[in-house]
Computed example of a mutant assay.
Amino acid sequence: MNIHWTPITQQDAEEIAAWKYPEPYNFYDMTADEEDLELFINPEKRSPHTFSGHKDGELTGFLTVDLENHPTVDLGLGMHPDETGKGEGESFVQACLEFAAKRYEATAFTLSVATFNERAISVYERLGFKKKHTFTQATNGGHYEFLSMEK
């Protein structure tokens, strides 16, 4: 997938915040958690390492890179709801990995995914991510189990 990554604009952040996923993936709607929404939508609180991904001129996803443990970087990513479930996940995540490796000279990657999201876990495993451990995190008004993965 040929994705053009740019620092996220406020317009793109607001568009992404309005994305609505079908159940059970609506867990990932930005509006599902007020704190997460504020961190994403407010330019003063948003990570300076957040990028918009465009394919053929259309907003297709986003990527946030956490450099706290550089050269291992932690990835937060999302695809446009209209693009999910169509077999594009692997190429999208690969584009995220290539961008982060090139821009940040990352040598290893981590990410966290809700344990119910078997579709995403399968994509990550096909790309070489290994399951590390599960943990519980407060989000979306409750406590949910997540899987930490590493490549």
Rank of each mutant, 00 (worst) to 15 (best):
K130T: 09
D29Y: 01
R119V: 04
L147T: 04
Q11T: 14
A32F: 05
L39I: 01
G128M: 07
Y124L: 03
V123L: 08
T31V: 15
A108C: 11
F51H: 12
M79I: 10
D33W: 11
Y28F: 15
D56Y: 07
D82N: 14
V123G: 08
P71G: 08
G53F: 04
S122E: 11
S47I: 05
H80V: 08
A17E: 05
P48R: 07
K55D: 05
L127H: 07
E58Y: 03
H4Y: 11
T6G: 00
V65N: 01
L37A: 13
L67A: 09
F92N: 00
N117F: 02
K151T: 10
E35L: 13
G76S: 14
P7W: 02
D66F: 13
F40N: 07
E90C: 11
K131F: 10
I121V: 14
A100I: 08
V123K: 03
G141H: 11
F40I: 03
R119I: 04
A100Q: 06
H133N: 11
L111I: 01
G142V: 05
V123N: 08
L97H: 07
E145S: 12
L111V: 00
E68K: 15
I16M: 12
K45S: 04
E38T: 13
K131G: 03
H80N: 15
G53N: 06
I3Q: 03
F62M: 13
Y21A: 04
A138T: 13
A95I: 08
F27G: 08
G141S: 08
V73P: 00
A18K: 11
T6D: 10
D33Q: 09
N2I: 08
S122L: 08
